[in-house]
Design a binder for these strands. Structure first.
Lengths: 158, 158
DNA sequence: GCATTCATACTCGGATATACTCTGTCCGAGTTCTGCAGG
DNA sequence: CCTGCAGAACTCGGACAGAGTATATCCGAGTATGAATGC
């Protein structure tokens, strides 16, 4: 059970976008994080489809958040990249074999699936409690208030 | 982020083993669940390496739990199959690019990694709170007290 | 009748192919800026 | 000097290969059983 590396890229990009004044091109985001532009673009498209960012074409185009950073949770980003399906997929093997479970019993998930889904709910709740704005605040606390000032300067000048 | 289907198989097998009197061969477990024997054996070997089950060779051999079902959590089984590494792997892209984070700051994980690890801790705690014995009790509540009686009968006779 | 030996049948374990998803890359469609010509 | 137009440069978006992992399978190594044999 491995999470895609694109999730890390996407979250970092959202933090950067929360500090930008205007649209930021994928090329600039890729350069800032030292990753491949074309591959990062793939993930940014997924964020766009999920409605988290808005892309503008043209010479001064780029990506920008559609909502305020307080209203975007880490869970939103993870689900946009990884998909909304749960990690555990019950194949109902209890219905197989010589002593299958049938009928009314199978109308609700088996205890194993319930335990898995409960764990995933806890996981999602933990991620939903952290917003992109919280992450940005954490970055300032870790690296100092000058960090985002320099970031904005680099975004503006290149 | 998808969990291996083998996890479901392994947990179901542990529940069955908790109700068995003696060792149960992989062939019997595979027949009971309607899955491939050879592939199930692979996962049972992982459980064996993790120390959750003990395998005995020979004509009346098979697999048996090493501890009581109360002492085996769902988390134990998941970690045995999926591995002990966390799903989120921080690649420290904050250290890349034109404005890298360096020095003392990088001695502890960045806020994004902390949020991910916290969520995984919540996930693991939820799974650790459920034991194989709990699952067995749930099966009896769902399908009736006769279920395991018939299971033991089938395991004995074939 | 009993102990010993041997063949057998059954078990697990690791080594071996295949399918699928993640990773990484490329080129085309669309939009905005800029320079130039004309009025 | 102002306006309209054409070109160019820059952007995103979807279509196209390669690598790594999950899935599925096979055959060989090892052991307890049970019958046959000798005492």
């Amino acid at each position: 059970m491995k999470m895609s590396a694109g999730v890390e890229w996407a979250v970092h990009c959202c933090v950067v976008l929360s500090q930008a004044d205007g649209p930021v091109p994928a090329q600039r985001l890729a350069d800032f994080h030292g990753v491949s532009r074309t591959y990062l673009a793939k993930h940014l498209q997924q964020l766009s489809r999920a409605g988290l960012v808005r892309s503008t074409e043209g010479r001064v185009g780029g990506y920008a958040l559609t909502r305020s950073a307080e209203e975007i949770s880490v869970l939103d980003v993870v689900l946009a990249i990884e998909g909304r399906e749960p990690a555990f997929r019950c194949t109902e093997i209890r219905q197989n074999g010589p002593l299958p479970a049938t009928g009314e019993v199978c109308r609700r998930p088996c205890g194993i699936a319930r335990a898995m889904y409960a764990a995933e709910d806890a996981w999602r709740a933990s991620l939903a409690a952290v917003s992109v704005a919280d992450l940005a605040t954490g970055v300032e606390e870790d690296t100092g208030a000058q960090t985002f000032v320099r970031l904005r300067g680099w975004l503006a000048t290149g």
